[in-house]
């Protein structure tokens, strides 16, 4: 032990205290620096997250389907660039059953060879949409119709403007129903993620719907597989394959199409909801019902009342009977 004098001891203690104070101050400064650096790093990370694409396994939002080969809308008007989730023109050969069913269609679309025949008089058309039958899937999508997905724990809900209907794309592990399931206009659907692709499988479709305007038919054995491959936050590559051994001799694989994210449907007037504080529109899609009582052009072959009255007069109570 070193022996120091009294005066030296006091100095040493004072020096030691001064050193300790300095060291403590340095420590506090260092601690503060570390905390600030951590805060900055977190903030940067959050900012970077926001600047990057959102969760790639979440397709929530409003989407427009572009036509095959298109990568962006060609114009900014309603429906511009919007297309149908088609299976394309390479329809496989019909089975005998499929041929017989297709031969009864009288489409409004003049597009051989997809349409069986084109008759110019509307009275001869029998497209089920002209009596406001549900469009079914996939016909209800595309055209002027936007899509909206809302993703929650057990499912992705897909909303359509046309017909104002939804499909539940269940992701909770349930299986598709068997052959005895009651047919539905929009079928039954389940889904799962396969890497960066959202895969939807559907069956149980009511066979009264057409697949397109040309009258492509299907049976109650139709099975659809849709693949939504997330390219980036704002673009999805969509493709669909139909398998229907009762109607077609081989599966029908459609072309790849691009879906583009929209802030909101351009079928909803911008002034309806105003704008968010950041200047972007509030999300919404339009309400587009097929209402038979309003579609006067659909009544060409029909007196809905069966009473010989003008349909509109019956609704307003001005009919004489």
């Amino acid at each position: 032990m070193r022996v120091v004098g009294k005066e030296s001891s006091a100095q040493t203690v004072a020096m030691r205290k001064a050193v300790e104070r300095t060291f403590n101050m340095q420590n506090r400064f260092l601690n503060l620096f570390v905390v600030l650096a951590a805060v900055l790093a977190c903030a940067n990370g959050l900012f970077a997250q926001k600047a990057q694409s959102s969760n790639p396994h979440d397709i929530s939002g409003v989407w427009r389907m572009l036509g095959p080969g298109q990568t962006r809308a060609v114009a900014q008007t309603v429906g511009a660039g919007a297309s149908h989730p088609t299976l394309g023109n390479n329809r496989p050969p019909f089975t005998a059953w499929g041929q017989a069913k297709w031969s009864q269609t009288r489409a409004s679309a003049q597009r051989p060879p997809l349409s069986y025949v084109f008759l110019p008089d509307q009275k001869d058309w029998n497209d089920p949409l002209f009596v406001c039958d549900p469009a079914g899937y996939p016909r209800t999508g595309g055209g002027n119709s936007m899509y909206r997905f809302v993703q929650v724990a057990d499912e992705v809900v897909e909303f359509f403007e046309r017909d104002r209907v939804w499909r539940d794309l269940w992701t909770d592990g349930r299986k598709l129903p068997g052959a005895n399931a009651k047919p539905r206009w929009y079928g039954y659907s389940i889904a799962h993620w396969d890497g960066d692709t959202f895969v939807v499988e559907s069956n149980g479709f009511d066979d009264r719907t057409w697949l397109d305007r040309q009258g492509s038919i299907h049976s109650d054995q139709m099975h659809l597989e849709e693949r939504y491959k997330v390219l980036d936050r704002d673009h999805i590559e969509f493709s669909m394959t139909l398998t229907d051994p009762k109607a077609y001799t081989t599966p029908w694989a459609g072309p790849k199409q691009t879906m583009e994210r929209m802030e909101s449907s351009d079928g909803v007037a911008p002034g309806i909801w105003g704008k968010r504080p950041n200047g972007k529109p509030y999300e919404d899609i339009r309400e587009d019902y097929c209402v038979y009582s309003e579609e006067h052009s659909f009544w060409i072959n029909d007196d809905p009342t069966g009473l010989g009255n003008n349909f509109g007069d019956v609704l307003t109570g001005t009919d004489k009977k």
Partner: peptide, 17 residues
């Protein structure tokens, strides 16, 4: 529904006659 969801209950005009 046997599928643990809502039944599909649509009013279809063509089914009325």
């Amino acid at each position: 529904s046997d599928f643990n969801d809502f039944s599909e209950n649509l009013c279809v005009w063509s089914e009325k006659k």
